[in-house]
């Protein structure tokens, strides 16, 4: 209910209420007309529009946010892009292995945030000089598990390693 600024009492007179609503309707109608006509005074500034567009592009590039185990100082999340970067780096650090593609299965999360990863699938290429492909797969699995623990305190997601290609090195 509108308040009379002089008395702090609610304005209950029907005619006054009606007039108040008419004024609000007029303002809204005028604002909409100005906006439809492209009047700059009711538009978002160029700076704001640029910021919004950049943020949307960045959001698409980063992918969804993924829940992580909280630190002792508070909660945090990481983008799927950052997660993929860390895993790929761990794979590429294994001799004779090259990361091709990494994907994640997630636990249920809240809203648009994905839950913690419970399965990581690493598709890799192995060097033609690799003497033991199963051992290479195991080394990749260990490297990814270590990176998850050391970087993220993320304990033991299931890690699948698929050797999909061979490369000369």
């Amino acid at each position: 209910m509108p308040i009379d600024p002089d008395t702090d009492a609610e304005i209950t007179d029907e005619a006054t209420e009606k007039r108040y609503r008419e004024l609000v309707d007029t303002v809204v109608r005028q604002w909409n007309d100005l906006e439809a006509a492209g009047d700059r005074s009711v538009q978002l500034s160029a700076e704001v529009l640029t910021g919004l567009k950049d943020a949307v592009r960045a959001d698409a590039r980063h992918g969804p946010q993924v829940e992580m185990p909280p630190t002792d100082a508070g909660p945090w999340t990481t983008s799927e892009l950052a997660l993929r970067t860390l895993v790929r780096h761990a794979v590429d650090a294994v001799p004779d292995a090259l990361s091709l593609r990494t994907s994640f299965d997630y636990a249920d999360g809240e809203g648009r945030t994905r839950g913690r990863p419970d399965r990581i699938t690493c598709r890799i290429s192995a060097s033609t000089r690799t003497p033991n492909l199963p051992a290479l797969g195991e080394a990749v699995r260990t490297a990814v598990a270590t990176a998850c623990q050391d970087e993220l305190a993320l304990a033991a997601p299931a890690i699948d390693v698929h050797i999909e290609d061979l490369h000369e090195r």
Binding site: A58, G74, W76, S79, A82, T85, L86, R88, D92
Partner: peptide, 16 residues
């Protein structure tokens, strides 16, 4: 404080 890590640069590799 909620931190959102958007990207990570790893030595020798730049992503994001």
């Amino acid at each position: 404080v909620h931190v959102r890590v958007q990207s990570v640069t790893t030595p020798g590799i730049t992503h994001g």
